[in-house]
Amino acid sequence: MSGEEEENAAELKIGDEFLKAKCLMNCEVALILEHKYDQLQQMSDDPRNQVSQVFEKSLQYVKRFSRYKNPDAVKQVREILSRYQLTEFELCVLGNLCPETVEEAIAMVPSIKAKGRVHDDDAIDKMLNDLALIKKFE
């Protein structure tokens, strides 16, 4: 694949298709998969037979690494982060990893400090504070 060499998430080079696609945070995926799992459970006694290994591994993973459990908090996280002119991908990396300091946030998502972007350290700091608040009051 020729596109493979170019790929670099740190510079947001993830292909047009994925850049425009809707990204999901782990906590959002957990809500979706749990809902689907419940539906399957109603249809048959043993949903474990119904789902693929990929489904099961993903469900375990997102349950383990969801920062926010409460559906309202999940919604709030997306709402707050979407005020900061982030791309979908950046938004979800921040929502998943919940960095605590500005340096950490920049290390996780180098593209927020890339040329032409409006974020200064204060804006990033405020964003992280907002995130921490949701976690606190969840």
Binding site: E7, N8, A9, A10, E11, K13, I14, F18, L24, V29, I32, L33, V54, S58, Y61, R64, F65, V93, N96, L97, M108
Partner: peptide, 15 residues
């Protein structure tokens, strides 16, 4: 559908 696609340069948590 929900897909999982890892990217070069991406930072994530793992077990």
């Amino acid at each position: 559908c929900v897909v999982f696609r890892p990217f070069k340069g991406e930072i994530l948590e793992a077990v």
